[in-house]
Design a protein around this nucleic acid. Structure first.
Lengths: 146, 146
DNA sequence: ATAATCCCTATTGTATTAGTAGAGTATACC
DNA sequence: GGTATACTCTACTAATACAATAGGGATTAT
């Protein structure tokens, strides 16, 4: 798996919205500023996240973005897969892959499947609520401004 | 981590050479044919692998390539890092990374560090001898021709 | 000599990434 | 109803990486 800027930005944005879950909408301006994301790039990402059902939006004055589900209902893996595509390190890992005729594939493919499983085991077992808790427990919180 | 064609080819090539460890050199022609790799692309990869100390070569007639160390002395992780570069899913995982000032980084970075650790735990604990053993134990061997 | 090898650099076509640009639409508020 | 402040959507672009391809050279067994 490789995380692109887009994926990184998406996760940070959802985490920011998770912090403000239950409050009034957060403007793209604030999101962009806090996570240091080019605002026009973030626009596209938020559009994607909306289409993916992770985010809702309110237009017009006092508009902004809201998390569409509660933080405990969104796993890291879901967002990553939606933004980045398949997370496996190489295509042959996927279930329906044909063309694995050589002996080399047999044995290396198994390794990639382990790697894939290990990765999924992590990102599919962490929700954004888990991350929020982590933030509360950490020192970082002090220097963070809402 | 993401495995490119180049990395995949490199691993398959070393595995092939591991199978022939202790025998006479293997020609690039045979390597390319068995793993279905474009020969001119494989040329570059073998040049890299030679510079990396994984492979030796003999020129002239009856020349070819040989594994530079014994299969038990080469870990998957070494080859991958040499060919693909850093294996971490995102740059901020690396030790000397600065610029981790936002709270978002703190907590997400930790996740990527877990993923990285899990991946390294796999690929840095498998040698090419392990893979050879795996091949012996598997059914695939039957249809494979040396 | 010559045929079969490996050695090395440069070039190319394609796709992906990380943005930028610019026009449009909705809504709160006076 | 006008206006400022938001979100919406599509198109474009510069830079880079990827996966080869091309075309010479140099070495060695016979």
């Amino acid at each position: 798996m490789k995380i692109t800027y887009k994926g990184d930005y998406a996760l940070k944005t959802i985490l920011d919205l998770a912090r403000h879950y239950g409050n009034s909408p957060v403007t793209i301006h604030d999101l962009a500023k806090r996570a240091d994301i080019p605002i026009k790039f973030l626009e596209q990402i938020l559009l994607d996240l909306k289409r993916g059902g992770f985010v809702e939006s309110r237009r017009g004055k006092v508009g902004g973005y809201l998390l569409a589900k509660e933080p405990s209902g969104i796993k890291l893996g879901e967002v990553i897969r939606f933004i980045e595509g398949p997370i496996e390190p190489i295509a042959c890992v996927s279930k329906n892959y044909q063309g694995c005729n050589s002996i080399y594939n047999c044995v290396l493919r198994e390794v990639w499947q382990w790697v894939n499983k290990a990765t999924c085991g992590i990102i599919d077992n962490i929700t954004f609520e888990d991350l929020l808790k982590k933030i509360e427990d950490s020192d970082c919180t002090i220097s963070y401004q809402i």
